[in-house]
Simulated assay, not measured.
Amino acid sequence: MRATREFLRSAGLPGGDPDAPATSGKRFPDGAQYRVEIPSVEGPDVLEAVLAEAAARRVVVHRVSQGSGGMLLTDGELRAMASTAVDAAVELSLFARPVAAWDTSALSTAPGGGPVAAQARGTEQLVHALEDVRRTAEAGIRSVLITDLGVLSVASRMREAGELPADMRFKISVQMGLANPASIRIAEDLGADSYNVPTDFTVAQLAAVRAATDLPLDVYVEAPDDMGGFVRHYEIAEIVRVAAPVYVKFGLRNAPNIYPSGLHLTPTAVALGRERVRRARIGLDLLHRYAPDAVASTLPAEGLAVPVR
Results as ranks from 00 to 15, higher is better:
149 L>H: 15
182 A>F: 12
172 I>R: 06
230 F>V: 01
169 R>G: 05
267 P>V: 03
84 T>I: 13
258 I>K: 12
50 V>E: 04
245 P>E: 03
234 Y>W: 15
105 S>C: 05
279 R>W: 11
31 G>C: 03
29 P>L: 04
49 A>Y: 01
73 L>M: 08
26 K>E: 14
74 T>A: 09
21 P>S: 01
202 T>Q: 04
247 Y>H: 13
268 T>C: 12
71 M>Y: 13
120 A>Q: 10
58 R>H: 11
10 S>D: 11
48 E>I: 07
85 A>D: 07
272 L>Q: 07
53 E>I: 04
79 R>W: 08
152 L>H: 11
127 V>C: 14
110 A>T: 04
248 V>K: 01
164 L>Q: 10
147 T>I: 08
49 A>F: 05
257 N>S: 09
151 V>F: 04
236 I>A: 08
243 A>P: 02
210 R>W: 04
32 A>Q: 02
67 G>C: 05
247 Y>M: 14
71 M>N: 15
60 V>W: 13
120 A>S: 05
129 A>D: 10
271 A>R: 14
259 Y>R: 15
254 N>H: 15
300 P>H: 09
125 Q>Y: 02
34 Y>G: 00
13 L>I: 04
36 V>D: 07
176 M>P: 11
98 P>F: 12
9 R>L: 07
66 Q>L: 01
162 G>T: 03
128 H>I: 06
244 A>T: 10
62 H>A: 03
78 L>G: 03
92 L>F: 07
183 S>G: 08
282 I>C: 14
261 S>E: 14
92 L>H: 05
208 A>N: 02
303 G>R: 05
56 A>I: 05
168 M>L: 10
170 F>M: 09
213 T>I: 04
234 Y>Q: 15
92 L>V: 00
8 L>G: 09
186 I>V: 13
163 E>A: 12
180 N>I: 01
26 K>M: 09
42 E>P: 10
25 G>F: 03
97 R>Q: 13
112 G>I: 08
16 G>M: 12
160 E>P: 08
295 V>F: 02
271 A>W: 15
69 G>C: 01
141 I>K: 14
185 R>T: 11
49 A>P: 02
198 P>D: 03
128 H>Q: 11
275 E>W: 14
142 R>G: 05
176 M>G: 06
268 T>S: 12
290 Y>W: 09
300 P>C: 00
146 I>K: 07
275 E>I: 13
96 A>F: 10
156 S>D: 08
253 R>C: 06
190 L>K: 13
262 G>F: 05
148 D>T: 04
305 A>W: 05
2 R>C: 06
186 I>R: 15
86 V>L: 13
238 E>G: 01
22 A>W: 10
257 N>L: 11
36 V>I: 11
208 A>D: 10
12 G>F: 03
268 T>N: 12
151 V>S: 05
168 M>A: 02
201 F>I: 02
186 I>G: 11
7 F>N: 15
100 A>N: 11
37 E>R: 09
223 A>E: 06
186 I>L: 11
76 G>M: 11
81 M>C: 10
12 G>T: 00
77 E>V: 09
135 R>T: 03
64 V>N: 10
219 V>I: 00
287 L>Q: 01
162 G>C: 02
232 R>W: 06
284 L>G: 08
30 D>S: 02
253 R>W: 06
51 L>P: 04
225 D>Y: 04
